[in-house]
Simulated scan of single mutants.
Amino acid sequence: MNGKHNKKLTPVAKKLRKNMTKEERRLWYDFLRGYPVRFLRQKVIGDYVVDFYCASAKLVVELDGSQHYEADGAAKDKVRTEFLQTFDLRVLRFGNHDVLQNFEGVCTAIDKAVQEALLP
C-alpha cells in the first residue's frame, strides 16, 4: 500500500490492540489470527486505525458498535470508507451483533472476500 503510516497514531493502535472489544477478540482469536492469509489488527492507515487489515487481499474488516448506526457515526464511516478505497482497499463492515449472532456467516463472508481478491 502506498499510504503513509501516521506515527502519531501508533500509540493509539497499540492501546486498541490491548483493549479489544469482545467482538474483536472473538473474531481475532477464533478466526483471523489462525487464518492462512495474514491479517493485522488495529492497523494504522493514514489518519485512521482499522480493526483488521489483510495486505495481500487489500481488505479491511471493520466491526461496528452502536455509535456507527447514529447519523454522525454513519457519516464518518462513509468518509473513512471512501478514504480507504482511494488505496484500492475493499472495506467489509459487520455490526458487533453479527459477530455475536452469526459468527460463521461473518467468517464465511471474510473468507469469500479474501479468496476473490487472491484469484489470479
Rank of each mutant, 00 (worst) to 15 (best):
K43S: 10
D30I: 06
V37D: 09
A113T: 03
F83R: 08
Y29Q: 14
D72T: 10
A113M: 03
Y29E: 15
D47A: 15
T21D: 10
R17S: 05
D72Q: 13
V50P: 04
K18V: 02
K18C: 03
V37W: 12
Y35S: 06
F31M: 06
Y48K: 02
G105I: 07
D77E: 11
G73Q: 08
C107V: 00
D111P: 05
G73N: 06
G34I: 04
L40G: 14
V114L: 05
D111T: 11
K4L: 14
R17C: 06
T10D: 05
T21S: 15
I45A: 07
K4E: 14
C107D: 02
N2L: 12
T86M: 06
F87E: 08
H97Q: 12
F94W: 03
V91I: 04
D88S: 07
R41E: 13
T10N: 04
K22I: 00
V37L: 08
N2T: 12
N19H: 15
R38I: 03
E62S: 10
M1R: 11
R93M: 01
T86G: 03
V106R: 02
A109M: 07
A55V: 10
H5D: 03
V44N: 00
M1Q: 13
D111G: 07
V106F: 01
S56W: 11
V106K: 07
V12Y: 14
L119I: 12
A117E: 05
R17D: 01
